[in-house]
Design a protein around this nucleic acid. Sequence first.
DNA 1: ATAAGCCCCTGCTGGC
DNA 2: TGCCAGCAGGGGCTTA
Length: 278
Amino acid sequence: MPELPEVETVRRALERSVRGLTIGGVTLRRGDLRAPFPQGFAATLAGRRIVAVDRRAKYLLFQLDEGKTLVAHLGMSGRFSFHAQGAVPAPALHDHVIFELHGGGESAGALFYNDARRFGLMTLAETASLAEHPLFAKLGPEPFSPDFSVAYLRRALEARAAPVKPTLMDAAVVVGVGNIYASEALFLARIDPAKPARAAAGKAEALHGAIRQVLAAAIESGGSSLRDFVSIGGETGYFQHAFQVYGREGEPCAACASPLFRSVQAGRSTFFCKACQK
DNA sequence: ATAAGCCCCTGCTGGC
DNA sequence: TGCCAGCAGGGGCTTA
């Protein structure tokens, strides 16, 4: 159930657990997740060494030797868990992919991918042309990159008539801002989520800072709550992050104590303070 | 071109 | 206690 902070936390855990290991057998326990696994998926991966684990938007990128990248998206319910040799469990319900890994001595084991809802995705891509891949070609900047500047955000907001909240969630504008952090950032910037994006452009600087602040705080929080992700098999893959507005309908606003509201925008829940956010 | 709606799938919760 | 509607943090596709 990841937004960018959890994906980043998973990435860091994978770097520690599987970087440098070589993929042996790959077991597909079904033919598809959100989309079918590509032809030759397991055969292509067999024998490849994991050189690095990177991230673009909410996609995990397992950089492999020989120029290939394993692209993985967790969807809403996807989880990776690493199990050391000798402690590899029998496959359980919704364990869809199992990567056998071998490397230096004790580091061998198996990486499991579990995804109850199967909104996740795995595919293969050429590392050299990753940016042109259909999944990535139209993505906006990473929120912590220099490309995501105040001026850029202001221009993007000015160009849109849609409400500012779904605009923030549009990956063509900026990647990694999901439903929770869109609400959180708008609260922090004191912007009404229903306000047209172009009308919120005047608060671009505050919003830019708020987006970075909520994401950075969540990464820090996720990093600490997931420190033992690898050794305990991924069962703690949730944030214990204190949200200011998300999921707090009816509770008092942390700033003004008036009750928080819930609305629905583009089919998703929005939480906000009517008094603070204009 | 932008924007809204629909859909994929399973699990959990809350109300009756 | 059981049942069922509604909802869930993503995102791509279709429709207007």
